[in-house]
Design a binder for these strands. Structure first.
Lengths: 211, 211
DNA sequence: CTATAATATGAGGATGTCCTCAGATTTGTC
DNA sequence: GACAAATCTGAGGACATCCTCATATTATAG
C-alpha cells in the first residue's frame, strides 16, 4: 500500500521512529520528493519545473521519482492534497468564530492564514492555479472558494448562496494577487504589502457586506 | 527597412492605400501575424502558444513568421509595444483630468480603460506578465506602474514617490486579478465582476488616499 | 547465507517546440 | 520576356521534456 503514486499528507506522516536505513525507503522518500518538488515549483513556476530538477533536488534519480508518482500531474495532485489539508486545518477554526468577528477582524485573520500558507509553502498559490488538474477532480477547484463563501454567509446570512460565492471568488482573487508581489518583496516590504492588501480586501468587504 | 524582425505598432500603421498584391507583403503581413499571435496567446497562454499555431492562424508558413520575427520573444515584444501605445493613448487623457475627479470617479475611469483593453486585446494582461521579456527592456516592467503612480500623486501630492509607486503596484495587481475571472465570465457576469472589483479598488484607494 | 522482495538507476524512446535554410514562388523593373 | 529582388515554403536539425524499462543495488525474511 505504499508504492503507487498518489499520496496525501496524512499517509506521508504516518510513521514511527526507527533507525535510518541506508537506502531511503517508502514514506520518507515520498516526503523528500514532495518537498523537493514544492521547492522547484515555487522557484521555477509550474511549466518550467522539470521532473529531473525535482529528482535531483531530492537526491534521487528520475526513475525513483517515477516509482512514487506516475507523472508530473500526480506530483501536483499530491502537493495540492497536502496543502488542502493544511489550509483546512487553519481555516476551520477561523470559520467557526467568524460570526463573532467584525469584518475588519475577519480580514486580518484571513490574511494571517494566507500569509502563513505562503511562508510555509511558497508553491501553494502557484499550484492552486496550475493547469490540467481540474479534469480529474473538478470539485477541487471550488473547495477553497466554498470555504470562503461559507464564512461570508455566516457573517451575513441574508447573502444569497451564489452571491456569497461571487464575493468569495473576488476575495480569493485579491489575496492571490498579493502572491507575486509578496514573493519578490523583502521582509519589511512584505509587512507593508500585507497592510495594503488588507485595506483593499477590507474596503471591498466593508462595501459589500456592510459594516 | 521593412524586413528585420522587430516592429512597433507605429511602423505597422505607416502605409498608404494601394492595390492589394497577390502575395501578402511587408507591413500587412506583419499586422496579420501579430493579430494571429495575439489570438493564440490569449487562448492558450504564453507557454502553450506555439509559433506553428500563430503561423497557421495567420494563413502563413512558419518560415514566413520567422522572416518577420527572429523568435518568439520578438513577437511578444512587438505585441507589448503595440499594447503600450494603445494603453498610453487611453491613459494620458485620463491622467490629465485626474486632479478634477473624485477617487470614485477615478476608479470608474481606470476600470473603463482596463476593460476596454481587455475587450480589444485579450492577450494584453497575459503578455504583461510573460516571462523573459524584462531582461532586454527592464524599464518596460515599470512603465504602466509609473503611469498609475503619477495619477495618484497628481491626486494626492503629499504622497511620496515610493509610496505612490507602491499604491500603483497594488492597484495594478487588483486590476490584473480581475483578468482570469473576466476571461471566463459571460457578458452579464462581467458587468457584475467589474462592479465587484471597482468596490475593491475604490475601497482600497479610499482608505489609502482618503475621500 | 540465500532467496525474494523492494527500491534505485539512468540511458534512451516518444513527443513536442523553436528555429534554420536551401530551394521554390511571386513581384517589380527594364 | 528576362532578370533580380523580395517573399514564401516546409522538411528537418537541435534541443528539452516526459516517461519507460531492463538492469543493478539494497533490504529483509527464513
Amino acid at each position: 500500500m505504499s508504492k503507487t503514486g498518489d499520496f496525501t499528507a496524512s499517509t506521508v506522516m504516518a510513521k514511527t521512529a526507527r533507525r535510518v536505513p541506508q537506502q531511503v525507503r517508502g514514506e520518507r522518500r515520498v516526503a523528500e520528493l514532495l518537498e523537493a518538488a514544492a521547492e522547484v515549483f515555487a522557484e521555477a513556476g509550474y511549466e518550467a519545473a522539470t521532473m529531473t530538477a525535482m529528482a535531483e533536488r531530492a537526491g534521487a534519480s528520475i526513475g525513483a521519482l517515477y516509482q512514487y508518482f506516475p507523472n508530473k500531474e500526480a506530483v501536483v495532485r499530491a502537493l495540492r492534497a497536502q496543502y488542502g489539508e493544511e489550509m483546512a486545518a487553519r481555516w476551520t477554526p477561523l470559520a467557526a468564530e467568524a460570526s463573532r468577528l467584525t469584518v475588519a477582524e475577519l480580514v486580518d485573520r484571513m490574511f494571517e492564514v494566507m500569509v502563513e500558507m505562503m511562508e510555509a509553502w511558497p508553491a501553494y498559490l502557484t499550484l492552486l492555479g496550475a493547469p490540467g488538474n481540474y479534469k480529474r477532480d473538478p470539485a477541487a477547484r471550488n473547495r477553497l472558494r466554498e470555504h470562503f463563501a461559507e464564512v461570508f454567509r455566516q457573517k451575513r446570512p441574508q447573502l444569497g448562496k451564489e452571491e456569497a460565492f461571487r464575493v468569495a471568488n473576488v476575495a480569493l482573487q485579491l489575496v492571490k494577487g498579493m502572491n507575486p508581489l509578496y514573493a519578490e518583496a523583502s521582509a519589511e516590504e512584505r509587512v507593508e504589502l500585507v497592510r495594503e492588501f488588507k485595506m483593499a480586501l477590507g474596503g471591498y468587504l466593508g462595501a459589500r457586506l456592510g459594516g
